[in-house]
Design a protein around this nucleic acid. Sequence first.
DNA 1: GAGGCCATTTGACCCAGATCAATGACGGCG
DNA 2: CGCCGTCATTGATCTGGGTCAAATGGCCTC
Lengths: 242, 242
Amino acid sequence: MTVRQDIHNSSAPVLCQACEARHRGICGALDPDQLVGLAKTSLRRRIRAGAELVGDAEAVDSYANILSGVVKLTKTLSDGRQQVVGLQFAPDFLGRPFKAESTISAEAATDLSLCSFPKAALERMMKEQPGLEHRLLRQTLRELDEAREWMVTLGRKTAAEKIASFLLLIAKNIDPARDPNARMAVFDLPLSRGDIADFLGLTIETVSRQLTKLRADGVIQIENNRHFVVENIARLEARSGS
Amino acid sequence: MTVRQDIHNSSAPVLCQACEARHRGICGALDPDQLVGLAKTSLRRRIRAGAELVGDAEAVDSYANILSGVVKLTKTLSDGRQQVVGLQFAPDFLGRPFKAESTISAEAATDLSLCSFPKAALERMMKEQPGLEHRLLRQTLRELDEAREWMVTLGRKTAAEKIASFLLLIAKNIDPARDPNARMAVFDLPLSRGDIADFLGLTIETVSRQLTKLRADGVIQIENNRHFVVENIARLEARSGS
DNA sequence: GAGGCCATTTGACCCAGATCAATGACGGCG
DNA sequence: CGCCGTCATTGATCTGGGTCAAATGGCCTC
């Protein structure tokens, strides 16, 4: 049987061979046969930054794994006020199972590479492979933890602490290969100042002023608006209020 | 087989017969045999308002279903600032699977009746009955939706809108038997002014002032600080900013 | 039913962050 | 190369909600 497994392993779809989602994402729950089955209906898509993936109250008939890039989840009040309620990075699963239409909208914050498949295909597979639902449950619980962490940031932190917390969040998530204990971080911000403001419950001006302050204090360096260097992550953490 | 099922049905543990969690909660996924199995290790507990159920960073070795009452989930920053990150009502499941220790603390907001069982018992049962994990996934997704909804409230609404949104949340959840379309609502607030402030990212004084304003405007009536009457829910909704 | 203990309300003032208004810095395009 | 359009920064001013302080009102005990 071990041999048989090996054969199967090597016969995993080429598409999936180098895929992050196959290891850390939900596809890790699938055996090679199932992987082949899902891959048959799946489709690799490239999406430009700014494109809307799912509109609010829009019916969705497909799910996807994020292969690279950042997705921004937002909710909008009737008068236009907007709140970013989550960011998703590779290899997160994208979609809201068991609901015909989404209550949030999803937008490509950066250029994106997705592996998408029909809603029905995944739901069929969930029935025959409980491990899939298990993976999904784990990701959902993690997202819930993150959302609650962010509620503290939104409800109780100052503007300066919010900005520091945000930069830490990005630094820690944008590069899947990054050493979690690294002392420094270099990254391109996936969000505009406006997006950051919507994420933190602030205005663009306040975001800008706080970033300027962090730079003036030597905690961060900024090049070309989007490229950030954090020499000493601990200094950011000290300002994050946690 | 139908007959056999019926026999099993009538042999469901007495404890579970009238239990809300058996229908709308996670126990709905269990067949009568499994229900008996879980009931053997389960324990009905009554808890006084104010008692701490789970401390932050405390190891937890049991889960529970809420049979009645309200549980307050909070997170606290190192300097004492506190944020209520969720409220749970009957028949919600209480606990964080797949994690040795909790990152939030749970407190009885009102007197509570719980049905608790050892962590190991549920995890064993989850392996033999995938439907259980399915129920858990559904509740977790719902909680995630709620958390994100609340992020909008925290990040983008005014104090007046926050208070109106909060009263709506309570009115709609505190009584499991309430008609969702009812035009009016009467309820006892499960939280103190301080708790409400911590839930909304406000101060006690602001909460009090906004409640006073709602009362002065005739939108709500308040008796004995905790007892609320909302004659016309639509008027509250109009002030909730959604 | 007097006194004490809280939770809540109310008032006066203040400040962090919003708002309004220029100004600066790119990058794309004719 | 110069003109826009977009995004970000910076400055001046305003204000919603915070802070500090005092009054009010239950409710409990004695």
